[in-house]
Simulated scan of single mutants.
Amino acid sequence: MPEHRPPGPPRPTPPPVVREHLPVRPIWLCRVCGGPWPCSPARAHLRQEYAGCLVTLAVHLAGLMLEADDELNRLHPYTAPPPGMLHHRFLGWLRPRAPRSASVGDQEVCVKVEINLDANLLINRVGGVGVGWG
Rank of each mutant, 00 (worst) to 15 (best):
R31C: 08
R31D: 04
V32K: 00
C33L: 02
C33K: 01
G34L: 02
G34I: 03
G34R: 02
G34Y: 05
G34N: 01
G35W: 02
G35H: 10
P36W: 06
P36I: 01
W37V: 04
W37I: 04
P38E: 02
C39Q: 04
C39S: 11
C39W: 01
C39G: 09
S40N: 14
S40H: 11
P41D: 11
P41A: 13
P41N: 13
A42M: 06
A42G: 03
A42E: 02
A42V: 03
A42Y: 01
A42S: 09
A42F: 01
R43E: 12
R43S: 06
R43A: 05
R43P: 05
A44S: 14
A44T: 15
H45V: 06
H45Q: 14
L46N: 06
L46W: 12
L46D: 07
L46R: 04
L46P: 05
R47F: 05
R47K: 12
Q48W: 01
Q48H: 09
Q48G: 07
E49V: 08
Y50S: 05
A51C: 06
A51V: 07
A51S: 10
A51F: 11
G52D: 11
G52Y: 08
C53T: 08
C53Y: 09
C53V: 05
L54S: 13
L54M: 07
L54I: 06
L54E: 14
L54D: 13
T56I: 05
T56L: 11
L57C: 06
L57H: 06
L57A: 07
V59G: 00
H60R: 15
H60T: 14
L61I: 09
L61G: 03
L61M: 14
G63M: 03
L64A: 11
L64E: 12
L64Y: 10
M65N: 00
L66I: 00
L66A: 11
L66C: 07
E67W: 04
E67S: 15
E67K: 10
E67V: 08
E67P: 03
A68Q: 06
A68G: 10
D69C: 08
D69M: 07
D70T: 15
E71G: 01
E71I: 01
L72E: 05
L72M: 11
L72P: 00
N73W: 00
N73H: 13
R74G: 12
R74K: 15
R74S: 09
L75A: 08
L75W: 08
L75D: 04
H76C: 07
H76D: 09
H76Q: 10
H76L: 11
H76F: 10
P77Q: 12
P77K: 09
T79C: 14
T79S: 15
